[in-house]
């Protein structure tokens, strides 16, 4: 199985390639991708240099253009696609059907991957994208069990890529409006989940308080590991109780299920984290590569060290190993 690794800067890109990534995914420094954070991402020139570096090392580059086009401003996304193709991207990761149609028509030779942001999570939806736009791979949402993935795999006509490590989005990606509700901005349209412009941290005695817009997301007592200020992982007062309404601050790790994912027909394993630093990328990619090359019984000790870098310093197999239904 291929290891698909994140990069938010050219420095992180180099680290991912050097650590053994089979492919690195990245985006332009604008609203065309779902990690449009201040100071992050690639200029055209940086992407050109990075792709050249990757090619020299036999690594592929996937360019994420996975936000939804704004009516009247389609040119921003069309230009992103044209530039990514011209710069030699091995695949474009797309979410918007209009952009998929544009790429399929203008660049029929270009490999097209369906972003998780497209919310294609059943065989009918996926096969439609294969037939209509010649999609060659789908990135599945983190809301499916491994049994679901295996069932989908038997009934679709393209490759499957799944997230195995990193940030855990528990929502129907591409359809989540929690961030929009709180801030007016979303990963789908603006490329930002919990935009930094609306995030505030403050100390209240020994507690760390995180706020998003007008909402208090969490109060972490002294010594408790912290998490991102996302509504889906907030701790709220609900009726008479106080707790996590959707999910704890926790990261995904399903590397313990590699054999099952392989048996389910998964072609590529994706690491989340374009917003993370190059130290994280280097450590996670090299550890994951070592785990992939190790027998199953030796993977857990290797991966345990990554928990200290994870949100809430905890990891979960999430819906992949759903036990509560």
């Amino acid at each position: 199985m291929e290891l698909i690794c994140p990069a938010g800067t050219p420095a992180a890109f180099h680290e991912a390639v050097d650590a053994g990534a089979d492919a690195v995914y990245c985006g332009f420094r604008d609203e065309t991708n779902a990690r449009n954070f201040p100071g992050l991402n690639f200029s055209r020139e940086e992407l050109r240099e990075s792709i050249a570096y990757a090619k020299r090392k036999g690594t592929q580059t996937f360019v994420a253009l996975n936000t939804f086009m704004r009516a009247g401003s389609e040119e921003i996304w069309y230009k992103g696609a044209a530039d990514a193709v011209a710069l030699g991207a091995d695949a474009l990761i797309l979410a918007d059907f209009g952009l998929m149609a544009h790429v399929a028509e203008k660049y029929p030779q270009q490999r097209l991957h369906v972003s998780v942001q497209a919310s294609a999570s059943n065989p009918d939806a996926i096969n439609f994208l294969v037939d209509a736009f010649n999609a060659q791979r789908v990135v599945l949402p983190r809301t499916l069990t491994i049994a679901d993935i295996a069932r989908i795999g038997k009934n679709i006509r393209c490759e499957m890529e799944v997230f195995v490590f990193g940030g855990l989005c528990v929502m129907a990606e591409g359809r989540c409006s929690l961030s929009s509700y709180a801030t007016g901005k979303s990963p789908n349209m603006n490329g930002v989940c919990s935009p930094a412009s609306h995030v505030r941290y403050r100390k209240d005695g020994g507690e760390l308080v995180s706020e998003l817009g007008e909402f208090t997301i969490n109060r972490f007592p002294a010594g408790e590991a912290a998490g991102y200020p996302t509504l889906c992982k907030g701790r709220f007062d609900i009726a008479d109780s106080n707790g996590y309404a959707f999910e704890d601050p926790v990261s995904l790790d399903v590397m313990g299920e590699l054999e099952a994912l392989k048996a389910a027909g998964v072609k590529a394993l994706k690491i989340e984290g374009r917003q993370r630093g190059k130290a994280y990328v280097a450590e996670v990619v090299s550890t994951m590569k070592a785990a992939l090359n190790s027998p199953p019984e030796r993977r857990a000790p290797l991966l345990a060290r990554l928990r200290s870098m994870s949100e809430g310093q905890k990891t979960t197999s999430g819906a992949y190993e759903k036990r509560w239904r």
Binding site: G39, A196, S197, Y201, K203, E224, Q275, R276, E311
Partner: peptide
Amino acid sequence: DALFFSRDLSVTGDMEAMLAMRNALDA
């Protein structure tokens, strides 16, 4: 982010500016 999760690092104020600085240094 890892240092923030472990509470070894704390940040306050303008988070856009802080993120931009973090990414500039990282790059």
